[in-house]
Amino acid sequence: MVAPPRVWWRPLDRLERTWLLLAFGWCLVLFAMMPIWLAFGRHNVPATIYRASAAQFRQRVEEFVQKYQVGTEKGIPIVEPPPGDVYLLARQWQWYPILKLKKGQTYRLHISSIDVQHGFSIQPANLSFQILPEYVYVITLTPLESGEFSIICNEFCYIGHHVMIGRILVTD
């Protein structure tokens, strides 16, 4: 609160210096962990992104659904694609279609929105990604466990936001 002496630039004490070095060392560890995990970790943020208009993406999803549809649940098609390119469309307030995947297989999941921003949050695995219109997010996923999973929208997408819950089935 009061003015410092005219010259206050003086060396640090023993404990001050020790704490500064300890803290800086920890900061370097925090920084290094990210590239290390990128190189060795098996859970990394996907970096494959494309641009596409809503109409173009919607058409791509429709073609995909027609090709691999195996049933319908509550009015939403169930789709069982082979490993590889898979499509998922986000819109107010639905994830389209329902995906049926095989455990241990790897899928390139293309997700985009045709209206506002949405959040792709797969539960109970609890991994989340931001979905924007005009951007196609390509998420390479490998389910290691079978069962039923939900997709919660976790970006507010107007007042029906909480009913936007989708479904992924993983079979052995």
């Binding site: 949050s121 539960q123 109970p124 609890n126 939900s150 976790n154 936001h161 909480h162 009913v163 819950i165």
Partner: peptide
Amino acid sequence: LGVPRRHWGVFTTPAIFSSLI
């Protein structure tokens, strides 16, 4: 546990599927 922010209800939602939270 995966509960989203800005969400009216993960257990009470009238959505057609369960949130599985």
